[in-house]
Design a binder for these strands. Sequence first.
RNA 1: GGCCCCGUCGUCUAGAGGCCUAGGACACGGCCCUUUCAAGGCCGCGACACGGGUUCGAAUCCCGUCGGGGUCACCA
Length: 497
Amino acid sequence: MATPVVTRFAPSPTGYLHAGGARTALFNWLLARHHGGQYLLRIEDTDLARSTEESVHALLEDLSWLGLNRDNEQLVFQSKRLDVYNRIIADLIRRELAYEAWETPEELASQRRQAEMARRAFIYQRPQLSDQQISRYRAEGRKPVVRFAMPVREYRFDDIVLGPGQGVPASQVQDFVIRKGDGMPTYHFAVVVDDAETKITHVLRGQEHLLNTINHIALQEALGYPRPLYGHLPIIQNTDGSKMGKRDRDKIVRHHANLWTKQHNATPQDLAGQSGLPTGRVAEWLKDSKKQLDGAEQTKVMKVIGLRESVLPEILVHDFRKSGYLPEVLLNFLALLGWSPGGDRERMSMDEMIRLFSVEGIGKSNAKFNREKLLAFNTDAVATASPERLLVAFKDYLSLNPDSPLNGVDDGTLAKLLRMKKGFRLLREVDELTRFFFIPDEQVLYDPEAVEKVLRKQEGQGASALREIRPVLEVIDNWVATELEANVSRHCERVGL
RNA sequence: GGCCCCGUCGUCUAGAGGCCUAGGACACGGCCCUUUCAAGGCCGCGACACGGGUUCGAAUCCCGUCGGGGUCACCA
């Protein structure tokens, strides 16, 4: 009997789940489900400055929308396990496999600068410190970090995606931090301890972790832990080849905000005032591309400058949900970014993916995120989805778009709207193209292109045709399709249209 | 820059030495349908990065070049 497969997804709660994270979660989930194993969820909140409780909620919400259910009832938070980590670290120090290091971040930064100027990679060198120096640092109030004394040798491991012999030569290994100045363990340490404790058998993660693996292996060897199988997934990129991240949206909003201030001869103060945000915040954000607005701030600014949600590329799972994609479609598409069941197979249900999933089908090269294809998948899926499925999805969409006038409309009517717009691509389209039913006439927005093309064409013939059809429709008692068709046709024949 | 990973149509990929005149999907182009926007139908354009080997035979194996990406945190 083979050992059961245990996988995990271990996000850090620093914001919404993004598409790349969702794919990592999906692959681990699929692997576990395919083998009838377990898929665990753990929260890696060791970064005190960036982790938030809201993010934890957002993460759970996104994961549950996607339907990637976990097998551990109790959520593990690393921040609540300090005693466990500290005990192990104390033991490593006692065995002289780890030690306290006293450099300040500034000192390290300057060492790195020197390395960079010398055009070589920075390798940390453990200084020989006397007891006096150490007590002097202590007296200064310095907080030491703990570093793992990495045995200097070549490290190699077999990657289940990239193949055998992955790793680095001895020249690249260095002692790395396992406990930070604030007392929290680093990712490298906590991940090794927790994976071992929960008996994780397979770790599928992004390729950005490939070289980290040697640190984890060294730690496992020092602690007598078994080594799970590692598989490093190709990275998801934007169409231009850059790494896909949430900055992409912020960049676009900033660009339009700057345009807006120019066109309206406005100041950052004006923008801040109108959007109800602190002036300093907005001014800094406008000129500093390293600063980012959070989701709520972004929405406020977009309202002021008249930027529509639909021009922003979706990056976060939340974005896709808000745009009106079906979760199973997102997952199907994400699965195909770096994995293929072989042959021509593309459109798959969750059950099919579980059945067909295998590590062998995971590719090695990076994949660019192609929204057009995702849209096409969604178009297909909503065209074949049952009315019940669509209604549920539509109501979910509306719950994320509280500003839509369709909120509060009864289910029967929503179902009719969905039927009426058959052939739609995104639920957002149904919303935007049918909201004229539910808002005052003067708020109805006309598509200028359509007005030109239809109403104004042939010297306003389009508009007058509509005017003339009105009395024809008014007198119809039995408001059904056949009746409408008959009356409209008769009218058209009469006036020669 | 050091180290590491990768390299089939514009994009995602199928392809595990002869099944390949390289298949599919999305995009794109044309035609059809349609007084909006879509959806739909038919047809088409389009790739093995380059150079050397190995072999009777290479997209598939080896080497080099070039190109892309990752990493070099008290972030994960």
